[in-house]
């Protein structure tokens, strides 16, 4: 074999290996979805969505977990979104190159890499014990809000950065103050981008299990939350609870619970993608 032929074959080999690696990721995703749908699709029914958990697998449903997830994620959004956008505005529009901003920036980058279970320990020590919020919806939402905060800040900053400086200049040149410029011109333009980032951050947070288990969220909750002080469970915890049971029937419930969870995530991500496409200039 000549040198040139050998090089040609090596080139093909790398191309093939790259393609193979790419297909590996896609193939596993396909296998995962197939496995879950074949295990759980048969369990999906109106009863499954509207029943409380039960010791008998065939009667068990995800109503409590579904409502728990909605309660927690809504509260999480109410806590994390305003603070996150505020921090992003500060860093992007006011921060400049000061030392304080630099410290905050490095800090946020590091927070984004802290394992979620550590946020659970923070929530346990701070919200559940020190502030005595107990294992309530509000304690769970506060914990997840801290977890989501770095992601919310980073994506909002990106959206703000994409706003043309010419727009800010135009506003200043008319005698607008900094805040008037941000409020009337910058934020409306950045809003779709901010919202997209927000939804993606919240959908990631919605799939979190470990931090909520760590703060002591219950795994068996036969009632829907009736307020922010109520004990709760969420979809991923309910799935985890079912996965931990040895009986086959509960595993099917777990798969069905996963399908519901994935469907919720799909709706959120689809909405985010739609927002992005619609407002992309």
């Amino acid at each position: 074999m000549t040198r040139r032929q050998r090089n040609h074959w090596l080139d093909l080999a790398l191309h093939g290996a790259g393609l193979g690696a790419t297909l590996l990721g896609l193939g596993v995703l396909a296998a995962l979805l197939f496995d879950i749908f074949s295990d759980g699709f048969g369990r999906i029914s109106w009863d499954f969505l509207t029943s409380f958990p039960s010791r008998r697998a065939e009667n068990a449903g995800i109503y409590a977990a579904l409502l728990g997830t909605l309660w927690v994620i809504t509260l999480t959004a109410m806590l994390a979104v305003p603070v996150g956008i505020g921090a992003a505005i500060y860093l992007e529009e006011y921060g400049g190159r000061g030392r304080w901003s630099r410290i905050v920036e490095i800090n946020i980058a590091n927070l984004a890499g802290v394992p979620s279970v550590i946020y659970g320990l923070l929530g346990l020590g701070l919200f559940v014990r020190t502030l005595a919020l107990g294992r309530s919806v509000i304690a769970g939402a506060a914990t997840l809000a801290l977890l989501a905060l770095p992601v919310v800040i980073l994506s909002s900053r990106e959206a703000l950065r994409a706003v043309s400086p010419a727009l800010r200049e135009a506003s200043y040149a008319l005698g607008a103050t900094k805040w008037q410029t941000i409020w009337h011109q910058v934020l409306p333009v950045a809003l779709p981008g901010i919202l997209t980032g927000m939804i993606l951050a919240l959908s990631r947070t919605m799939g979190e299990t470990a931090p909520l288990i760590t703060i002591g969220a219950l795994t068996y909750v036969p009632f829907a939350p009736d307020g922010i002080w109520s004990p709760f469970t969420v979809l991923p915890i309910q799935v985890f609870n079912w996965v931990s049971r040895p009986q086959e029937a509960f595993l099917a419930n777990a798969a069905a619970g996963i399908i519901v969870l994935l469907a919720l995530l799909l709706v959120m991500n689809g909405f985010a993608a739609w927002l992005r496409d619609r407002y992309q200039h």
């Binding site: 790419t22 990721g25 896609l26 596993v28 995703l29 296998a31 995962l32 496995d35 879950i36 295990d39 959908s203 990631r204 919605m206 799939g207 979190e208 299990t209 470990a210 991923p236 799935v239 985890f240 996965v243 595993l251 777990a254 798969a255 996963i258 969870l261 994935l262 995530l265 991500n269």
Partner: peptide
């Protein structure tokens, strides 16, 4: 591929244990 990163980890746990 980004979808792979967005799948909740509890789902991967199910997949690892049962598939």
């Amino acid at each position: 591929l980004e979808v792979l990163a967005g799948v909740p980890t509890v789902v991967y746990g199910y997949f690892a244990l049962l598939f």
